[in-house]
Every structure is written in C-alpha cells, then in structure tokens.
Amino acid sequence: MELTTNVPNLESMSECSLKPYDAVYLGMPFCFEYQGNLITEFDDLEVAVNLLRKWGKKAYVTTFAVPRNKDLEKVYRTVEKAAEIADAIEASNLGVIRYITREYPDVRVHVGGLANVYTVSTAELLYSLGVSRIMPAYELPIEDIEKIKETGVEVELVAHGKIPVGIGHECFLKRFSDTVGKDCPKICMDSMFFKSEELVLKPFGHATLSGKDICMYEHIEKISFADALRIETISERIGYREAVGRIYRRRIEKGFSKTDFEKLKELAEHGIANGFYFNKAGQLYIPG
C-alpha cells in the first residue's frame, strides 16, 4: 500500500517532512493564485519532481479542480508539463480527464475526490477511458468504495486530514480581505475558519474544507483494501505533514499506538471525525 500526501509549493517541501511517504501530489488544486503553486510555476515543479526522485519518491502532479472554459488552456499547459516529468497526473474534472486520456494515452491518470465518482458504472466508464486510479467521492461509505474497487481500478482514500466539503467558482475568503487586512494570496496563508454552532469549516482557495481532521487511525484495517492512503495536508504546515505521516507510517508497519493516536488528536485543532466512511454525518467520530 502506498502512503501519499500533497504539497502546494516548493516552499512546503523538505526531505524530512516527506520521508514517511511513498508518493507526493504536487500543486494546490483549489486555486491558481496560491503563492508558488506548482501547477503554474513550472520551474519550481521541475525542481520539486527532481527532489522527489532524489528522495526515492513518486511524483504526481495535480491539476486545477474546477476549470471553466477560460481555464482549460492553462490546465492543458500543466498537463503537458506533467506528462513530461511526472509519474501520474491527478484530475478532478471529467473534461480534463477526457483530454488527458485522449492526448496522452500512456500517462497514468488519477481521478481526484472532487470528480464525484459515486457509482460503479461511473468508475467503469472512467476505467474504460484509461484512468488508473480513482479517489471515490468523499461522501461514500466503505461498503460503496469496496464495490468500486471490484471494477479493477486502483482506489486511493483519505486516511487523515481535512477533506473538501464544497468547492465553488470563487474564493469566498477574498471577500474579507479588507476586514482581515490581507489580500490574495497572503490571506490564504493564515489559518482561518468559518464557525457556526458546533460546525467548523476551513476556507481554502475555491474550496471549503472540513474543519475537523478526518482520522482513520483507529479504523485503518477497514480501509486497508485501498491501493493508496492519502494524508491530506494541502492546507497544513510542514510540521503537521511530517508528524502525521510518521504516525501513519508506524501504524501501517507496527500497529496501533495509543500515544500516537493521542498525538493525532492534539494536532487536530478542531477535533477529529470519520468523514462519511460509516454512513454518518461527516463531522462525527466513531470510536474504534
């Protein structure tokens, strides 16, 4: 099983923090304007891929998740560059997936979680187009994901971290630039949350992320059928990526540790949850 994570820019990469991982998704898929975004900064992308090679990791490149017509050429430039240098390209838009599988039939395509793959029939359709791996819709419970896996396509699942719970046409946080006193892209660098009643959300680019950290540490055996497990760290600090990665690496190789589990809870600023894996509200946590 592959342990993966993601980094938005070169600045977020260090050998130490990426040591626990087998493969790394490069680039921030929720906004083109993110500072140093590897999906647009191609010189940095080359450096990042070379570093990952040197460190013995696979390099995957992600793409902008919600491209409109005007964005397609920009996305295609990312695809062209990634096809040259990366081990796989991640895409969450069905149009982009169609484009890559048609224009670059030899390139591995990973379907991102925002592609909304809910059904076996859609998984089969994408598999027939030539995609290698699918991250099913975040809203799917384990029993649905197992059925998707039966199609033969590789499956990647989020084991830990903040998952998208929405994505739109704009960065809503930008509307608060004056109040916060920071413009794009600086405003995104701070840790900001929307709060209401017991609900906490994290705005990040065009996406809104879960405020809680999805945590499958206690339940990892239930998703061990997956071909890859993702530690979702695109909006996190380097230290978080390193600490969580190490804990999950130990979990996979050595088993459960109460100390490690407590550490994960400490690292989660707004608590932990199981997402939708158990047919419950995404923000709930079911103890193992």
Partner: peptide, 15 residues
C-alpha cells in the same frame, strides 16, 4: 458559493 453538485456541507453537519 459552491457548485451545486460539489457541496457536502449539509451532510458533513448532519446525516
């Protein structure tokens, strides 16, 4: 503020 088929805030809150 989200695309209609790309919002799970409701089910994240209660399901």
């Amino acid at each position: 503020f989200t695309y209609l088929g790309r919002c799970w805030i409701s089910s994240y809150k209660a399901l």
